Computed example of a mutant assay.
Amino acid sequence: MTDTGTPLHGTGRPDPVAGTEFSLQLMLLESRDIAAFLDELAVLAAYRLSTPGNTIHAGVTVLRHKRPRAVAASDPHAMALDELQNGFGEGPCLTALRNRATLLVPDLAVERRWHPYVRTARQHGVASILAVPLDLAGEADAVLNLYSAHPGGFSSEDVSEAETFAVQAASSLRLAVRITQLIEVKSDLSATLESRTIIDMAVGAIMAENRCGRDTAVAILTRASNTRNAKLRDVAAAVIASISGETTISTYFDE
């Protein structure tokens, strides 16, 4: 649905993105990380919507901590256009992102909104823009930004196709975000367990050397950390290195 509330579906032509969801899931499995997946997503979107004589440039912008960030693009031109709009802090793509509604600007030459950005975008060869939000179900806010060098570069059929693609892409992107979050949690847990192991080893060494209890050993280690203005883990590692000569501590635990 556009920002005017007019549906742009029901063109009646066969779905040209049949199988796209499977392709996106395959891309997700084969991508080395979420950044690579987003780049491939932008490339696929541009490929799907480009026609002879009308090359489409695609970018993806994500809203993080209320600040937009261009995270992926089909090509350097699309990335530059996304960053340009983010620099102005306004434009059709950011409006679509904030309103969570598809927005089509068929001809920038007659557009009266976002005047400073529109003027600059035209200087960069943009004539029409289509922005389609990606519904990530609360995981984040993102928008697919599509640029054409031609006025009327996006037909109603193109809008319908782009919205269908965005729905399919969002499904895979939600999965990518959740996988990334799980990886980050696992990484944080591993780091925490490693730090705890090193600290416990140092506490044991201090107990043996000073013939004291655990609480006293912890207090000694903490006092050294505060005095040196260093992390407790780093001080603990230094204690172990001074006793055993080991500078690298390996930890093992069942996942």
Rank of each mutant, 00 (worst) to 15 (best):
M1E: 11
T6R: 14
G12N: 13
D15Y: 04
Q25I: 08
Q25W: 12
M27K: 09
L29V: 11
S31T: 09
I34E: 12
F37W: 08
E40F: 07
L41S: 12
L44I: 01
A45Y: 01
L49K: 07
S50V: 08
S50A: 08
N54W: 02
T55W: 02
A58H: 06
V60G: 05
H65P: 06
R67A: 00
R67F: 04
P68E: 10
P68R: 11
A70N: 04
V71E: 07
V71D: 00
D75M: 07
P76Y: 06
L84V: 09
G89V: 12
P92H: 09
P92M: 04
C93Y: 09
L94R: 01
T95V: 07
L97E: 06
A101Q: 15
L104V: 14
L104F: 05
R113I: 00
W114F: 15
R119P: 03
A121G: 00
H124W: 07
V126K: 03
A127M: 05
S128Q: 01
D135M: 08
L136K: 06
E139L: 02
A140L: 00
A142R: 01
S148Q: 07
P151W: 04
G152P: 10
G152K: 12
S156C: 06
V159T: 13
V159A: 02
F165S: 01
F165Q: 07
V167A: 12
A170H: 03
S172N: 08
L173H: 08
R174H: 00
L175W: 04
T180V: 01
Q181H: 12
Q181F: 00
V185P: 01
K186W: 11
S187Q: 14
D188S: 10
L189E: 12
R196S: 11
G204T: 12
A205P: 06
A205C: 10
M207D: 00
M207S: 05
R211V: 10
R214P: 09
T216M: 13
T216V: 13
V218F: 11
V218T: 11
I220Y: 13
T227A: 15
T227R: 12
N229M: 09
N229Q: 15
L232C: 02
L232R: 10
D234T: 11
A238W: 09
A241N: 09
E246N: 12
E246W: 05
I249P: 08
S250P: 04
F253S: 13
D254F: 06
D254Y: 11
